[in-house]
Amino acid sequence: MKTRGWFRNGALAFGLAFLYIPILSMIVFSFNNSRLVTVWDAANSPTLAWYRKLFANGQILDAALLSLQIAAVTATGAVILGTLAGLALVRFGPFRGRAMLATMTTAPLVMPEVITGLSLLLLFVALEQLTGWPAGRGIATITIAHITFAMAYVTVVVQSRLAGFDDSLEEAALDLGAKPAKVFFRITLPLIAPALVSGWLLAFTLSWDDVVISQFVSGPNSTTLPMVIFSKARLGVSPDINALATIMVLIVATGVVLSTIWMKRQERRRLLEEQMARSDAG
């Protein structure tokens, strides 16, 4: 058994190194003062030159602001729609159109992005011909496209959270005369709050990161940050992108760690309350 433990841990260490070395190399080279982006210039480094250049680049800043707005609206819309879909699929039992809803919420998870992007663009063009809306492509069409694929992820997160609770609390509240809407806001929603937070963050990340679908459904004045990065990256490596990546990694790492701590704390409090309720009853 000793040798197997060695193999297992070796594989894990190798895998984690594989996952983190590229990120670390980007961070390191963002502080490198050299025209040759991949050669470390020990004499003049570390430097913040690339960060200064990044914050002087109006195109990147505008694109980042646009992406931020789209991602925030997308995340909010996806959480609302995804929560409704998850609630219906887990709690409502059989209803007409249930199988269809289940299919429509799992297929986007694996659908190649080029297909989603192409089909949505063709829909928007056809809609514009028929109704005059949307007039051209832009922020609105990108947001609709992002909500559509992000809500599938939120649905899965909400579904698995809801499936982890039985509906006894909700039923007790209904028996005591609470209206369904009240039950949802007073009981179901607090229970699934952690799933909504992680769903929101997930949807935000998916939108913030998407380049393929955005390329299909964007218009002339709606270039998102990933589209700028992609066109720059196609031309080769540029160190200000390294600086941008470093900033993004820092924000994300902080956010994930904080939200994990928050969720752990919520969970602990919930368990404690359950315990107290049980000892009161007993």
């Binding site: 590229p22 990065i229 941008l244 990546a245 994300v252 994930v256």
Partner: peptide, 24 residues
């Protein structure tokens, strides 16, 4: 640790490999 890279930009992580794999 497995999920954390997934939260950082997919595009930037692919781009990082350009810098690693280039001839120089």
């Amino acid at each position: 640790l497995i999920i954390l890279p997934f939260w950082t930009s997919f595009l930037l992580r692919v781009y990082a490999w350009v810098g690693l794999l280039k001839t120089d």
